[in-house]
């Protein structure tokens, strides 16, 4: 074809396409198209499993011990993922069981204990650090900030391992203790200290995160409020009590709620500690127990019930905290 007629042809095509576009209305579902991939994934993998968990909690779903998918063994624990079989409706039996399940209760206690230690430590530390970093006289703010934030990026399993190594008999911590003349502690040997260890570990890992949030909140407080308080006669402590804390309330509430939710999720830390020899009974958290139930004992129905109860507890706690503000 001659070049002239090619041009003419493409012109005509373009013209026709444009006419077509003008005639067609905008596809009303454009938004849906954008939303679709996310939504499908969400429903399949997040929404559906939630309902499925609740559904399963009313069943016994016992696994059959045929050749396992794989197994893992460390320390005292042997974990196995098998292929699944038999499903049987049992109504509320799982829930009745967990009311009587002392292991579950113990694991709840462990989790709550760690939470109770970790929360004041971490929030107090984060608040104090944020206040100091916000004050006028501090230099090298950026350096300190970065440093505090670093642990937040640490892999949860890896950092637990590091702590185990530090804390083990003859490890770095023992050496430091000796420097100060304190008797070394058997962190992994008894339940009391293993729980405390977990609390300290969590504080190490997450303080920076909360500190950043509180710091941002601090920076929104108008300087003139402090000046007015100064003129009214407030000392530094009084300013903190009457201006800083009330103004920080929403931020502190946020920190409280997220920390609460987070502390009921702990799995990596207990796994490593137990693997390193900590007493299972006193160290297992709720999620760890659920894991044992579901993937070691293969009782997926009971595990689902436990999950439902756990989520229920966490959500209730959050609601209580929000209402209490």
């Amino acid at each position: 074809m001659s070049s002239e007629s090619i041009v003419k042809l493409s012109d005509r095509l373009r013209f026709q396409r444009q006419r077509f576009k003008e005639v067609m209305p905008t596809i009303p579902g454009t938004a849906y198209i954008f939303l679709a991939p996310f939504f499908i994934t969400f429903v399949l993998f997040l929404a559906f499993p939630i309902f499925y968990t609740v559904y399963l909690s009313f069943f016994t779903y016992q696994g059959v011990a045929s050749d396992p998918l794989f197994w893992v063994q460390f320390g005292n624990v042997y974990l196995e993922i098998p292929k699944i079989a038999s499903l049987e409706f049992v109504g509320l039996a799982n829930y009745q069981r967990l009311l009587r399940d002392s292991v579950f209760h113990q694991s709840m206690f462990n989790t709550i204990y760690v939470f109770a230690i970790e929360l004041p430590l971490m929030v107090g530390l984060a608040l104090g650090l944020a206040v100091v970093l916000n004050a006028g006289f501090t230099r090298f703010k950026g350096v300190f900030r970065s440093l505090m934030l670093l642990p937040v990026s640490a892999n949860t399993v890896a950092y637990s391992v590091v702590f185990v190594v530090i804390v083990a008999e003859g490890g770095l911590l023992d050496f430091i203790f000796q420097l100060f003349g304190i008797a070394p502690l058997n962190w992994l040997g008894n339940g009391f200290w293993s729980r405390n260890l977990m609390a300290f570990m969590v504080v190490w890992r997450w303080t920076g995160y909360n500190m950043i949030i509180i710091l941002a909140g601090l920076q929104t407080i108008s300087e003139s409020l402090y000046e007015a308080a100064e003129i009214d006669g407030a000392s530094r402590l009084q300013k903190f009590r009457y201006i800083t804390i009330p103004q920080l309330k929403p931020v502190l509430l946020f920190v409280l709620v997220t920390t609460t939710i987070g502390s009921f999720k702990k799995f990596s830390e207990p796994t490593i500690l137990i693997g390193a020899g900590a007493p299972v009974k006193e160290t297992r958290t709720v999620v760890y127990y659920i894991y044992e139930v579901a993937f070691q004992n293969l009782q997926l129905g009971y595990g689902s019930a436990l999950t439902v109860v756990l989520v229920g507890i966490v959500m209730s706690l959050s609601v209580i905290q929000l209402k209490w503000s």
Partner: peptide, 12 residues
């Protein structure tokens, strides 16, 4: 005692 331009009243 001072009256500020933006009043600086304690909001809470």
């Amino acid at each position: 005692a001072m009256v500020f331009q933006n009043y600086a009243l304690y909001p809470h």
